[in-house]
Amino acid sequence: MKTRYLVPMILLAAFLFAACGNGEEDRRADRRPAEAVEIDPATAATAVTTVHFEGTAPDPQRISMAADRSCQELHTEPVYDRVVIVNEDGTLANVFVYVKEGLEGKSFPVPGEGAVLDQVGCMYTPRVFGLQVGQELIMRNSDATLHNVHASPTANREFNIGQPVQGMENTRTFNQEEVMIPFKCDVHPWMSAYAGVLPHPYFGVTGEDNGTVVLDNLPPGEYVIAAWHEEYGEQTQRITLGESERQELTFTFRSDPA
């Protein structure tokens, strides 16, 4: 090759190198060599977790839907930002309960069905939810106005999807374990949701009728169970489950953490 082609050739090579390098960017997180877990129903254990609340719940703030007339039209009653929901039996709703430690190195099948985050009446439904690593998250806009689903994870890749049309659905998956990932709609700053992403199916969220989460079909062993609430943070408890054992746990969140 003549020397006068050297410079362009170097440029070309540099470019090709850059192009190839770009392709590599997509590499997935290292998958730990996982032993497939087969759970024997005969020995499976159960942790029944109930979350209580003590103290006085803060007054819910009223959301001024007047900020967006297309949202306002969807509501006849005043809407409140219900961060702390205390049920009649004194339990606390919207607490994410999950197995935090004790399942390392085990792998679980990913459910084929996706988790759904819906946007109805300019609010997220559900407000707190969980899904598995690799499981599809289906985000649906049921309103006839623009919402954007702006997820701000730290371990996973951030995304920000605009959904201008009613009925639109977008799907994403998370490749890393992460508790919790906040979701926000930038158009409606009051909208907020949280998702817990776990590599196993042992999680649940306390409801407005029932402050209990049943983690069943667990292999016997030692676990750390955690309960997370967006206002009051996370609490953990260590338990040991014997074969076919059923244990009850209680978490208590206090409004005044004295």
């Binding site: 967006d68 106005t145 623009l146 954007n148 920000n160 605009g162 930038d186 158009v187």
Partner: peptide
Amino acid sequence: GLGHYRMR
């Protein structure tokens, strides 16, 4: 940003 057109 993406919501520019309806920052109403």
